[in-house]
Design a protein around this nucleic acid. Structure first.
Lengths: 338, 338
DNA sequence: CTGTTAGCGCCTTCAT
DNA sequence: ATGAAGGCGCTAACAG
């Protein structure tokens, strides 16, 4: 591999000059510049990013850690982060944590070791909180994406979970649903507890009995599935809301276990949803995050923080969209008073 | 940030000793070692990977470029690569190419600039071939994953596409299907042309007329959808095979366009398939790649190549599995001569 | 068993 | 407008 020394020798200049034409960091005479460029071309020289980074203690790169790149929402976020990063001349380094706390820790370490100038953390596993404070001391600033932590003075970008759920429930109560099951999952996760709050908002808006609603929380999806299936078999419940994709999987299986069918005799709605929503049967009414834009927003926040490390932390919330599909449609036709 | 000099000073030793305890690269007396360790602990010192890499010209890391981390198969491959890498003490750097040639190029560049010790390329976009030769000259060895290139002397790991398709077609002809539509897509992609070859194998095995089969090739999914829909409306075709997930999307939409239904009056099978195959309706018969294992295999190949750069290139093919589901079931019941 | 020292390739101040 | 030279933090001879 050719180095600056080679280029300098061939061009008949000092390495200092080579460096300056490379970085446009001071004027160099047209003719010398051309000689240098020619030498670069001839040798196929390329800057050594590592040496450069070491000297500048800056890498012009940022890192992104996602818990499950396989989920469509995360893929979109990653895409947004990538696009925004590229637009700012930053390269993006990625690492998966596979929803595993240990792996996540390693991934973060790897990226930090590589001296990324900043870090975006999407959906830190639940165990992350203990590790976040330690990251505060790193020189690389941090922004949290999607899964936020209320109590930490951090830059964060998330969605308006509570509002969205409320809108969804309002829509369903308007369709005359009065007995809901809400699959809320692990309410230690802020996004999920916010969604649950929004559910209660919606129930109150319609002056419905909270006692008539089935609220399923916890971390054991199999148990949730069993409980929901049992309820659906026995009760006259008419609507199921799942608060995330994995919870939707459990809930859909429960619907099937119970011998119920969507949308014929139970309405179904989910947050986040599945890939190919128009192919998935039944087509599911879905509250979708503006994942791409969230990624873009995260990069903005990160860049601003890199600029001014001392400003006070900001939380950005983006609006979600309610995508109505057939899984919540049948009751509308059959029940609305005409 | 503390450096080795700080540690050395505090421990009252030379930086050389610090380096050696850190890397276990020569014997150091128990007591000194402990002093060093204590100093490291006290200062919170951590090695500077960049400086280290620069000095050793080795990073103990490998890179992975995938075209679409969102597709389940790629997510699994990535997971396999990650696991295998970790098992060998390597850290993994990821980059998405979003199925875009330019982006892919940049991603590769980024990783190479970061001095990964080797590179795994999964599903290079079609335009990659022109760029592959140039990568041959890089010091970092390369292994291709999933989307292979026949003519290049490269390490590759893929699936036994031709065999798998043949098995699938054999299964379907045994169920009395005689008129197929095969959605082959862009046959410049080796995996797809291999699958098409396997299709013809299967047709020949059953002594069926090739002329009676509808073979849809090309890069325009909308056109494929339209052609297939038209055919399904007019013909008595009974089975559709899609050769990849995107092609399956087009094909499923065509089935719907034509007013046909799976599996009631048309059997359907696909390669690769969708996430949550047991939730997706209809449940699709799917030929699935051992994606995780492919990732693992790729790392093995890469490590061997790093060891001995001069050995002759190897291609590893893994066997796929045929997952039978209801989308190919109805005809079995109704048509098999009893 | 431990220390000294020469770079790895680059950027950047200080001279000229 | 250009050069010379000092380090960034580390590893690996080479010496003792």
């Amino acid at each position: 591999m050719a180095t600056m020394v080679d280029v300098a020798r061939i061009a008949g200049v000092s390495i200092s000059t080579v460096s300056h034409v490379l970085n446009g960091t001071r004027n160099v005479e047209r003719s010398t510049k051309e000689r240098v460029l020619a030498a670069i071309d001839q040798t196929g020289y390329r800057q050594d990013t590592l040496a450069r980074a070491m000297r500048r203690s800056k890498t012009d790169s940022i890192g992104l850690v996602v818990s499950d790149a396989g989920e469509p929402a995360f893929a979109d976020m990653a895409h947004g982060v990538e696009t925004a990063a590229a637009a700012h001349g930053l390269t993006l380094l990625l690492a998966n944590s596979a929803e595993d706390a240990d792996r996540e820790k390693r991934a973060i370490r790897t990226l930090l070791d590589r001296r990324v100038d900043g870090l975006v953390l999407a959906r830190a596993a639940d165990t992350a909180p203990d590790l976040l404070p330690s990251l505060q001391n790193e020189k690389a600033p941090l922004v949290l994406l999607d899964r936020l932590y209320r109590d930490l003075p951090l830059d964060q970008v998330g969605a308006e979970n509570r509002e969205s759920m409320r809108t969804l429930v309002n829509h369903l109560t308007r369709l005359q649903h009065i007995r809901f099951a809400v699959v809320a999952g692990d309410t230690r996760v802020p996004a999920l507890s916010e969604r649950l709050d929004g559910f209660f908002d919606g129930i109150r808006d319609a002056h419905l009995e909270i006692a008539n609603q089935l609220v399923l929380t916890g971390t054991d999806d199999d148990e949730i599935r069993a409980l929901l299936a049992r309820d659906l078999r026995d009760s006259t419940r008419t609507a199921v809301i799942a608060c995330s994709t994995p919870l939707a999987v459990a809930a859909l299986l429960a619907v099937e276990d119970a011998g119920r069918a969507t949308p014929d005799n139970v309405a179904f709605a989910t947050f986040d949803g599945f890939a190919y929503p128009d192919l998935f049967r039944p087509r599911l009414t879905t509250v979708r995050q503006p994942a791409f834009d969230m990624g873009v927003a995260a990069v903005s926040l990160l860049l601003e923080r890199i600029e001014s490390p001392e400003g006070s932390p900001r939380t950005v919330r983006l609006r979600q969209t309610l995508e109505l599909r057939e899984s919540t449609e049948s009751f509308e036709a059959s029940r609305i008073p005409s």
